[in-house]
């Protein structure tokens, strides 16, 4: 009975998984200029590195139709890094109606930001830009600026490529994992509520006929010791994100963080 049930269940599951079209729907790619701009004011990249990134980014920009901007600086002139980045983008002649993605690195405050124009927010929601900031931060912290830029470009490409593609395999696997976990929880609860009768011995104290007559009740001081622990202040940073406006009033979205 059990074998028959499991075989049937697995068959249904496999048939079901096979019938779902993999990569079912793919949304339109953003239609844009498809170009990359690298402005390395902080001199984080060597000429060769900059060239390599530019070539690599060019391909990605072409394929995705995005304007890709990588801007580094030693100072944002007191501006919040995302706004600084959006302003720099607009200074290059672009605006918020063009599909774009930007990476900004401020070495003065050791901050970074990933910003997208409002028309590209659909592809790069705050959750995504937060994740991109976190991923890039690891490389920046290690001083690997070229790899940080490459990671940013790779994630940009992957995000656009996978946009609208239903991750059937992941969904099935997650559902299966959730199913197994739920089954384990339910069975564990059933096992827990399975009548396990308490076989605990009743304490003999129950049969005490009268109160305890104390003959000795003595507490003797032995020693003391004191321990001192320095309190650590919390120095960890966290990324923040959401919609914002550039100095000219353009609408953008993105995340920033420290490294």
């Amino acid at each position: 009975m059990l074998k028959r049930f499991l075989t049937l269940s697995l068959t249904i599951l496999l048939l079901f998984a096979c019938n779902v079209p993999v990569g079912a729907v793919r949304a339109d790619l953003p239609l844009g200029l498809g170009e990359i701009r690298i402005i390395d004011n902080a001199d984080l990249l060597s000429e060769q590195e900059e060239k390599q990134i530019e070539e690599y980014g060019e391909q990605i920009a072409q394929e995705t139709g995005l304007i890709v901007l990588i801007q580094t600086t030693n100072s944002t002139n007191g501006k919040e890094i995302r706004r600084y980045l959006a302003d720099a983008y607009e200074d290059l002649g672009y605006n918020d109606s063009m599909p774009s993605i930007m990476l900004g690195i401020d070495m003065g405050n050791r901050e970074l930001a990933v910003v997208t124009s409002i028309v590209s927010e659909e592809y790069f929601p705050v959750k995504k830009t937060n994740a991109m900031v976190d991923d890039v931060t690891d490389y920046l912290s290690d001083g690997e600026y070229q790899r940080a830029a490459k990671k940013f470009l790779d994630e940009t490409y992957e995000t656009i490529r996978n946009y609208g593609v239903k991750p059937v395999k992941e969904i099935v696997l997650i559902s299966l994992g959730a199913g197994v976990v739920l089954a384990l929880i339910v069975v564990a609860v059933m096992v827990a509520v399975h009548p396990k009768l308490s076989n605990n011995q009743v304490s003999a104290s129950r049969y005490l006929a009268s109160k305890v007559q104390m003959h000795e009740h003595r507490d003797q001081y032995l020693r003391s010791h004191t321990a001192a622990v320095k309190i650590n202040s919390n120095t960890g940073g966290s990324s923040s994100g959401g919609r914002f406006s550039s100095s000219s009033g353009g609408h953008y979205s993105g995340s920033s963080g420290k490294f």
Binding site: L6, S9, L13, S175, L176, L184
Partner: peptide
């Protein structure tokens, strides 16, 4: 048996 039914049903519904 119960665990199997739950796992399969959850997988199908979840998918």
């Amino acid at each position: 048996l119960i665990g199997g039914i739950i796992a399969v049903a959850t997988t199908i519904l979840g998918t």
